[in-house]
Amino acid sequence: MKNLDPISHVITANVHTVSIDQKLSTVRKMMAENQIHHVPVVNDRKLVGLISATDMLKLNIASAKTNTKLLDELIDQQYTIEQVMQKNLVTINIRDSMRKAAHILSNGLFHSLPVIDDDRNLIGIITSTDLIRYLAKSY
């Protein structure tokens, strides 16, 4: 793997997103149906936050026996997307290298980086899994 390869080689460009005015249950459904762990929150195309599966688990309102309709009602009654999303995000620019992405993700504090352009428009997302898959293909 060339450590200066652009992250455009590995990002997920067609990212599932939500806006602040949507219901939090939308995020839960999106994660479950698409087997994803990170959902960027956008205003138009501008990145304003991110909700991870860990953020959803911290809500601590679900039990294994709760049906999803009841769970979604509880989530939407108690929380909004804005309350749950992470706002102070570490991001990476589309022109940055995989080396930079690997360096940031290697600290282990989080497992995804929203990829933005110079105007803070969301371009995609890169995860630690994306980097590992790229590395596996390279060897």
Results as ranks from 00 to 15, higher is better:
1 M>Q: 09
2 K>V: 13
2 K>A: 12
3 N>I: 15
3 N>V: 14
6 P>R: 15
9 H>L: 15
9 H>M: 13
9 H>E: 15
10 V>T: 14
11 I>Q: 06
11 I>K: 10
11 I>T: 09
13 A>Q: 14
17 T>D: 04
19 S>I: 11
19 S>L: 00
19 S>Y: 05
21 D>F: 05
21 D>E: 14
22 Q>H: 09
22 Q>R: 08
23 K>G: 00
24 L>N: 12
25 S>G: 12
28 R>A: 15
33 E>P: 04
33 E>R: 11
34 N>V: 03
36 I>H: 06
36 I>L: 07
38 H>M: 02
39 V>A: 05
39 V>R: 02
39 V>W: 05
41 V>H: 07
41 V>Q: 09
42 V>T: 10
42 V>P: 00
44 D>A: 11
44 D>W: 00
45 R>D: 12
46 K>V: 06
46 K>C: 03
47 L>I: 13
50 L>Y: 07
50 L>D: 01
51 I>Y: 13
52 S>K: 05
52 S>L: 09
52 S>N: 09
53 A>F: 01
53 A>Q: 10
53 A>S: 13
54 T>L: 09
55 D>I: 11
56 M>G: 05
57 L>Q: 13
57 L>Y: 06
57 L>I: 07
57 L>W: 04
57 L>N: 13
58 K>A: 13
61 I>T: 08
61 I>Q: 06
61 I>L: 15
62 A>E: 10
62 A>H: 04
63 S>P: 03
64 A>E: 14
64 A>K: 14
68 T>R: 10
70 L>M: 04
70 L>Q: 12
71 L>G: 08
71 L>V: 08
72 D>C: 12
73 E>N: 13
74 L>P: 05
75 I>C: 12
76 D>F: 09
77 Q>T: 07
78 Q>R: 15
78 Q>S: 15
81 I>P: 10
81 I>W: 11
81 I>N: 08
82 E>C: 06
82 E>L: 02
83 Q>F: 05
83 Q>K: 14
84 V>T: 13
85 M>Y: 10
85 M>S: 08
86 Q>R: 15
88 N>L: 10
88 N>M: 06
88 N>T: 08
89 L>K: 02
89 L>W: 02
90 V>R: 11
90 V>H: 06
91 T>R: 08
93 N>V: 01
93 N>W: 03
93 N>R: 03
94 I>C: 00
95 R>A: 07
95 R>K: 14
96 D>Y: 05
98 M>I: 15
101 A>P: 05
102 A>N: 10
103 H>K: 13
105 L>A: 02
105 L>H: 05
106 S>V: 01
106 S>K: 03
108 G>K: 06
109 L>S: 11
110 F>T: 02
110 F>S: 01
112 S>T: 02
113 L>I: 01
113 L>N: 02
113 L>M: 01
114 P>V: 01
117 D>L: 00
117 D>V: 02
117 D>K: 01
121 N>F: 00
121 N>Y: 01
123 I>N: 02
126 I>F: 04
127 T>L: 04
128 S>E: 08
128 S>F: 02
129 T>C: 00
131 L>Q: 06
131 L>R: 04
131 L>E: 05
132 I>L: 15
134 Y>D: 11
135 L>D: 03
136 A>N: 12
136 A>H: 09
136 A>V: 14
136 A>R: 11
136 A>G: 04
137 K>C: 10
138 S>E: 14
138 S>R: 12
138 S>W: 08
139 Y>V: 13
